[in-house]
Design a protein around this nucleic acid. Structure first.
Lengths: 155, 155
DNA sequence: ATTAATGCAAAGACTTTGCACCGGT
DNA sequence: ACCGGTGCAAAGTCTTTGCATTAAT
């Protein structure tokens, strides 16, 4: 990953670009929003709101839970991050919804890994199975056992 | 759909079979469990726990929310129904997880429609993208606009 | 100076739990 | 009669909301 000199700290370039994009859309650039964006950047990031809060508080102890939820909701509405529904109760948040990817989920430990998409699943669905829907996208989640869990005693 | 004469009412054959299967597994056959199983039977059923409770109470007014949750949890553990994660807060429950199928979800109204699976998505994922996982299944959710919503004013 | 964003705490939605009573087997 | 299942209500988890205060522009 490449890094840039920010005002006070080193942050990934991608976050800088994100911040720029948000400012261009008229966002007020608060330290809270910056920290949430920073925490959410990078590959294979799939945090719950609580985990975002936790990590954000390391950098900015006074940030509140409500602000984290507000910011996450706004980022989702803007299409900058995506909600990932899991079997757990809490939703998870995934950056870079633009760079289309699919998920590998471990049935044992719940770990989520990003994978590059296989062939277009939307195109693969025959017209007779579309029931009149106009399709926009197909979400694919692969389920199985990750190498770490397979290594430990098998169930 | 085919129907059978039950003890007191007409219920779908599939429910009878389900009940039989459950009794064979040592389940106590209570009226509450029977009603939950009945409510969950049929094609394109994707109810929330609350909707199951609501419909169950039509037939059995004294059934409690806790019993509905208990029964749903047990049916999931037994593999008789499947949880469907949605964008909504509440989980939905889907009968016949054995008859593999995929879901079509309307982005506008949230309606879920079952579709017959396209070509095996697991097989389609290249080995280099598997990151050492042993894959068990692939869940595919198609997203788009259903005919009814497309008919109304477009957004 | 304006006005949106924040933090707090309370409320809300969904689900789980503890325990006394009930009812299949 | 036994013992698992049920119902109730309380508690728990995750998320949203109302409103006074703070801070970006």
């Amino acid at each position: 990953m490449f890094w840039n000199k920010s005002t006070t700290t080193l942050v990934p370039v991608s976050v800088e670009l994100l911040i720029d994009r948000l400012r261009d859309r008229g966002w007020r650039l608060t330290s809270q929003r910056r920290v949430v964006a920073e925490v959410l950047s990078g590959p294979n990031v799939h945090l719950t709101a609580d985990e975002v809060l936790e990590r954000a508080q390391v950098r900015l102890p006074e940030i509140s839970r409500a602000t984290v939820y507000n910011t996450l909701t706004e980022l989702v509405a803007m299409g900058e991050i995506a909600e990932v529904s899991t079997d757990e109760r809490a939703k998870r948040y995934d950056p870079n919804p633009d760079r289309t990817h699919q998920h590998l989920v471990c049935d044992r430990c719940g770990r989520i890994v990003d994978v590059n998409p296989g062939p277009d699943a939307v195109a693969a669905l025959p017209a007779v199975e579309r029931h009149g829907f106009v399709l926009r996208q197909a979400e694919v989640t692969y389920r199985g056992i990750c190498p770490e869990c397979a290594g430990r005693a098998g169930a």
